[in-house]
Computed example of a mutant assay.
Amino acid sequence: MSTEPYIPIATLCTYYKVETSFFHGLNDYGLIEITTVEKLPCIHQKQIKNLESIVRLHQDLHINFEGIDTVLNLLEKIHDLQDELKAAKNKLRIFED
Rank of each mutant, 00 (worst) to 15 (best):
E96A: 14
V37M: 13
T14F: 08
K17V: 13
E33Y: 10
T11H: 14
T3N: 05
D97R: 07
K89H: 05
L12E: 05
V55Q: 02
P8R: 12
H79T: 09
F23V: 13
Q82E: 13
E19F: 09
D69Q: 14
L31K: 03
N90E: 07
E52D: 15
V18P: 02
M1Q: 02
D69T: 11
V71C: 05
L74A: 09
A88P: 06
A10T: 12
Y15N: 14
I9V: 05
I7K: 14
K77F: 00
A87C: 04
L61K: 10
L61A: 11
K86L: 06
A88I: 12
R93K: 12
V71D: 03
L12S: 02
L72N: 06
T36E: 06
K91V: 10
Y16G: 06
D28T: 09
A87S: 15
D69I: 04
L31M: 09
T70Y: 05
P5I: 01
I94Q: 07
I9L: 12
L81K: 14
L92R: 01
P5K: 01
F95L: 00
L57M: 09
K46V: 15
A88D: 15
R93W: 03
S2I: 07
H79V: 03
L72Q: 12
M1P: 07
I43Q: 06
I43F: 02
N27Y: 15
K91E: 06
I9Y: 04
T36L: 06
Y15H: 11
R93D: 01
K89P: 01
N50H: 05
E96P: 01
P5C: 08
Y29S: 00
N64D: 15
E38W: 08
H24K: 09
L51M: 14
E76R: 10
L81C: 00
I7Y: 04
S2V: 11
H58C: 13
L72W: 00
D97G: 11
H24P: 00
M1L: 03
N27V: 02
C13V: 05
L92A: 03
T35C: 10
L51K: 10
Y6Q: 00
F65L: 14
L85D: 15
N73I: 07
M1T: 04
T14Q: 13
G67D: 04
F23W: 00
L31P: 11
K91N: 03
Y15L: 06
I7R: 02
L74I: 15
P41K: 09
I94H: 13
T11R: 06
N90G: 05
L51S: 06
K89G: 00
D69L: 09
N73M: 10
